[in-house]
Design a binder for these strands. Structure first.
Length: 579
RNA sequence: CGGGAUGUAGCGCAGCCUGGUAGCGCGCUUGACUGGGGGUCAAGAGGUCGCAGGUUCAAAUCCUGUCAUCCCGACCA
């Protein structure tokens, strides 16, 4: 492709709307333009990169035995009503009525396709002999994000590969899951991405039933906890803290419990400042409703409750923070003064609370707190649990190491669904004994746009993007220095033709511009290999070949330049392909 | 949905406080020079100052409303 014949609107200046590197660079390098918040046009370079990523995904899905289909983005709202996800999605589900002849049809734009695919399989699959099977598609998804942001990282419309496995049993599900997991690893390494598979909140099935694939990136929206020693990684919601049942530290303390006035101090920070103690020396008492029964949750003052862990520890179906009325009932005080002593409901204690000595806690009375509170002595502690979000420096649950926080961009999610959708949508099969069972499902998603945005976010320098060969919109950028010089253009065209007929994707910057201008644009756009023809080199009969990441150019005789570059491209591609 | 910020030419910005001919840089067009890391000179094109209403002889500027975009938070199967 000749630059003059395509559409690559590079920009020298940074558009003021863009804050993070990927957004800025994708705009400046002419990959995308915004239509409105959360919706972007992909220009030629951007779309080529998208298609390359999608093709790698497609190849690996096929290799893993999944079959490609294509489902409608338009979906009847009834399907979402049957699975209860109309409410679960809420405002995120884009849905609307349309008129058709004399009646109204209510439809949704697919945010994902569990409903549609399960409905499909319920009609197509009758027998265990047809199972297992995994289908996938690459398709635009629609979600009314409350707040689209970070350029292309969080949009209301995005390209997603979604795969769904159907099987007769947990064994078949586990097998499909493993195949997808492995395929995902191959996909990301072929895309030249650094990635971390992390354990994610898994819902009903439990265990290791869900993994997210994260690109470590400062601007990532997700918090990951990772062990520096053994590689254990999980998202914040899921991460175990590695804290164990601790012995009661303060039973021998001779400090007596004292009541102190804390007028108007209803928050941790206010009390901490007023009493000149650290929040880590305080006991936070939260009142939850677990299956509609009040329960106190005791945490160290500087920790945050993790509702997933709470729910499991309490074996509760539903869990929500209690309303003010309930809090006043069980504590005898307004919100902000709850404490573990004299609590009129049962309570549950986090591991770290038991280790506190002479702590500060609410007094269950307006404008009063207690000092010198010791777990075990001043309130009963029979058992402790892991109830909180992990924090930086927590011990690893798997080894002796400590854990650190990393931010990440979620680029994929594999999930064992079980029978949730097959039950609500009556997707069943007949086993060998003519008994009916619901299909056992898994679902597996990859955000294709995010692969591109994630690369832009993590692979760049001060001059611009740096694409891996496998995703780069073009593999080689060819720069004739002076397009008005016939000899230069003759050589450049020859090299261009040789490369193109060998299947190498070449972008030739045939614009009439000064060399420096073209070099700056070349760096911005980030094509991995650059060939320069003209000037001093031409007089010596050589072309200059340079990697985007390299500092020095190789001088190659003009006649050999194309074949040399073909070799480089092939070597780099196979390096990425082998992972 | 709560909090904050910004809307003036394709991009980046000034002008607004103190109302009176809409400006600068980049980019774009034409020509000349130049030619190895975002050139120089000259001549041009391009804006109902987000939109609506109000105040005023007069509004980019003051007032009210509204829309859009961005950031923080809440939310994110």
């Amino acid at each position: 492709m000749r630059w003059s014949q395509t559409l690559i609107p590079t920009m020298k200046e940074v558009p003021s709307d863009a804050e993070i590197p990927s957004h800025q660079l994708m705009l400046r390098a002419g990959l995308i333009r915004q239509l409105m918040a959360g919706a972007y046009t992909y220009l030629p370079l951007g779309y080529r990169a998208i298609r390359k990523a999608a093709e790698i995904v497609r190849q690996e899905m096929d290799k893993a035995g999944a079959v490609e289909i294509f489902m409608p983005a338009l979906q009847p709202i009834e399907l979402f009503e049957r699975t209860g996800r109309k409410d679960a999605f809420g405002n995120v589900l884009i849905n609307f009525p349309i008129r058709r002849r004399d009646h109204e049809i209510h439809m949704a734009l697919g945010p994902t396709h569990e409903e549609v695919v399960t409905d499909l399989m319920s009609k197509l699959v009758n027998s265990y002999r047809q199972l297992p099977i995994t289908v996938y598609q690459i398709q635009t998804k629609f979600r009314n994000e409350e707040r689209p942001r970070f350029g292309v990282l969080r949009t209301s419309e995005f390209l997603m590969k979604d795969a769904y496995s159907f099987g007769t049993s947990l064994e078949q599900l586990n097998d499909a899951y493993t195949k997808m997991y492995d395929a995902y690893c191959r996909i990301y390494s072929r895309c030249g991405l650094e990635y971390i598979p992390v354990e994610a909140e898994s819902g009903a099935i439990g265990g290791d039933a869900s993994h997210e694939f994260m690109i470590p990136a400062e601007n990532g929206e997700d918090s990951i906890v990772r062990c520096t020693a053994c590689g254990y990684a999980a998202n914040l919601e899921r991460a175990d803290t590695g804290r164990q049942q601790s012995a009661l530290a303060g039973v021998d303390s001779s400090t007596e419990v004292k009541t102190v006035d804390t007028p108007g101090m209803g928050t941790m920070d206010a009390v901490a400042e007023f009493l000149k103690v650290e929040t880590s020396q305080m006991i936070k008492t939260l009142i939850y409703l677990a299956d509609d029964k009040p329960v106190g949750v005791l945490l160290r003052g500087d920790h945050e409750a993790n509702e997933g862990k709470l729910r499991r520890a309490l074996e509760a179906e539903t869990l929500e923070l209690a309303d003010e009325l309930t809090i006043e009932e069980v504590t005898g005080a307004p919100v902000g003064f709850a404490g573990p002593t004299s609590l009129k409901c049962k309570y549950i204690v986090d591991h770290d609370v038991a280790a506190l000595v002479d702590a500060v806690a609410g007094a269950n009375s307006l404008d009063q707190h207690l000092t010198g509170v010791n777990p075990g002595r001043d309130f009963a502690v029979e058992q402790t649990f892991d109830l909180r979000n992990a924090v930086d420096g927590d011990p690893c649950p798997r080894c002796e190491g400590t854990m650190e926080f990393v931010h990440g961009i979620e680029v994929g999610h594999v999930f064992k669904l079980g029978t949730k959708y097959s039950v609500s949508l009556d997707a069943e099969f007949l086993d060998e004994k003519e008994k009916r069972h619901p299909l056992v499902m898994g679902c597996y998603g990859i955000g294709v746009n995010r692969i591109i945005a994630g690369l832009a976010e993590t692979c760049h320098d001060e001059n611009g993007l740096i694409w891996p060969m496998s995703i780069a919109p073009y593999e080689v950028e060819l720069i004739p220095l002076n397009v008005k010089d016939e000899v230069v253009m003759q050589e450049a065209n020859r090299i261009y033709d040789e490369l193109t007929s060998a299947g190498v994707e070449v972008l030739m910057d045939d614009r009439e511009a000064r060399p420096g201008f073209k070099f700056k644009d070349a760096d911005l756009v980030g094509i991995p290999l650059r060939i320069v023809v003209g000037g001093k080199g031409l007089k010596d009969g050589i072309a200059e070949v340079k990697w985007r990441t390299g500092s020095d150019a190789e001088r190659i005789p003009l006649a050999d330049a194309a074949s040399h570059v073909i070799g480089l491209v092939q070597a780099e591609k196979s390096r990425l392909a082998s992972g």
